[in-house]
Design a binder for these strands. Structure first.
Lengths: 194, 194, 194, 194
DNA sequence: TATGAATGAGCGTTCATTCAT
DNA sequence: TATGAATGAACGCTCATTCAT
């Protein structure tokens, strides 16, 4: 009975997602055609549609994959308190932002962000990916923050610091992540002294 | 010998760009068809192609318009020194980020950002729009910054703080700009005490 | 201004419908592809979609055209009473069934009939095309019909006599319409004597 | 050396034909996909192709089945002479037309009729199904028919009366078969008096 | 024998762009 | 100058059929 194993099924799915990532990186989800994904994956049109209902479903799976990756990344950063958990949170992100192997994912992320503005399903996936913010905020709530600093908003500032850098580096690949990271860390040290 | 006045030509151009912005806001530049822009502008297909060579040219013009707007916005914020110029720089941006009339432009900006990753012309327009960073950095270079804080990178952090918020609010329109702004300002106050 | 005249628009529409009829005759609406209609019409894909929203819309237009033709055909047959109006009704149909120029339309009609079973819009078009039955029935209602003969059902019998022959001749083109018609007329004469 | 018994083979074949009938009834042979038939039968794609060479072969088998059914139906109606054999012929048909259990077969029949116009094999099956006409005609040939009534053509009229009603009822399921039948029988009684 | 994953040609339709009027 | 009808390549997707297991 040729019913394929769960393992093979997962591998084929991943093959498609990898091909989609590669295609999306080059031209964005709209610029990449199904033919591109088909060629990149080495599979046939029909085969791909056994794993995903539509191109849209592939885009959503790519978005989901990215956020699962992100959540796993941050899961254990949140196990320690302020200010060490905070530092780990930022470091986990910065490691991702600096990792050459993740360049593709970062570039595709920007397309997902743009698309999430119109696509309700994608918007949900993206905002659910913002969940770690809650954890960061609850850690910050117990910390001696300067007056006027809201824990929720501070968490968003930290995320923005990452997102903005990811964006800037997507246009200027030569931007040095280490220098940026050092500056951010130096700024965060001001908190300890307050 | 221009058959139509320069003034009329500019007005027609603007009409197309406004229609494009409206169309792009709804579905992004890829999701919006030339037919959408044609319908929204009330002009004919042929007429539009007298003002712009291609859809791509319209997208570039939209991107350029946005960055000219941005530059004008920041031009006079840079006339005073640290820390007042810095505050004005941030306030100018925050006013834009909070202005309901600018919602359309902000949403389209995210698409431009994504597209700039692949489109060289767009990338140049976007990175040229980053010019104010240089001015901010040169102001910061003369300021008594904490140890380890690079002026160029600090300027990027400030930009990131805006960009990230713009992004987050594009997915969660209810996010309160005032609360975010207050937290950012409170954090920046730490600099004065250092 | 190249906005085409109403006349040209109607001509183009007809060109598409004629091409569709020719294509449908050869292979039925499902067997004929849009490419067939495009080739047959000598128009481009895009042009056709300016006149019809979809292939389905073309099929509906073909069905509508056929029934408008039919209604016009029967309109004046109904101006006289029994038994002359009845004879004219049948003759009008028989002339159509025997007319070589109408062979295409007859063959396509059978496909429309089949399709009308599932397609609600088509079903409405087809059943509205049955309207003449009401007129025939009302003429028959005033006639001295034999006992047990319901005017509505008799009208349906008459229609069935046509439909069935159309069907039989679609499989056996050599069937002689004249012989069939003579036999039907002879049978109808029995009514006069009753 | 058949690995499976002839009996099982026939049962499997029937299972496929039943699934095909059910699928064709819903959407016609073109609207129904092999996947539909596969799902409806509970068999696998590969299994079905061991019993039928192609979808076309299934359609032909469905058509053949229908006409075998029809022939069996009429076989013994033809054992008696005019006018009783005639009445039995019509009654056998009318029973089929009124039988709710045969609704599926009737609806599919219309599709077969349409398709038989282009498909030579189907046309042969359908015209061979018209064989009873010959028997009816030969019975009628010995009967005292009114002047101008050709036995062959009269047989066709009788068939048309059935076919047309089947068609009309496929669009208007509420049509009362009994009323139609009564009217037809009343009309046929005129023959006795002539 | 039976399975269902895989194939890839072909489907209906859309789109940015052109050009006769 | 302006119009919008026309183009035709390319799109996302489905399908009957095959064949490795």
């Amino acid at each position: 009975m040729p019913r394929i194993s769960e393992q093979r099924r997962a591998a084929q799915r991943q093959r498609i997602l990898d091909a989609a990532m590669a295609s999306f990186e080059k031209a964005g989800p709209d610029g990449a055609s199904m033919q591109d994904i088909i060629a990149e994956s080495g599979m046939s049109a029909g085969a791909i549609y056994r794993y995903f209902d539509s191109k849209e479903a592939i885009i959503e799976a790519v978005a989901t994959e990215r956020h699962e990756h992100e959540k796993a990344l941050l899961a254990d950063a949140m196990t320690v308190g302020f200010p060490d958990g905070l530092r780990q949170f930022m470091n986990a992100y910065f490691d991702w932002v600096a990792d050459p192997a993740e360049a593709q994912r970062r570039r595709v992320a920007v397309h997902i962000w743009a698309r999430a503005q119109h696509d309700e399903r994608l918007r949900q996936i993206v905002t659910e990916g913002l969940a770690p913010l809650k954890d960061v905020a609850s850690v910050l709530a117990d910390a001696p923050l300067p007056a006027g600093v809201d824990p929720d908003m501070f968490a968003r500032v930290l995320l923005a610091v990452i997102q903005g850098f990811l964006l800037q580096r997507s246009w200027e690949p030569d931007l040095d992540p280490q220098k940026y990271r050092d500056t951010v860390n130096s700024l965060l040290h001001l908190l300890n002294r307050s």
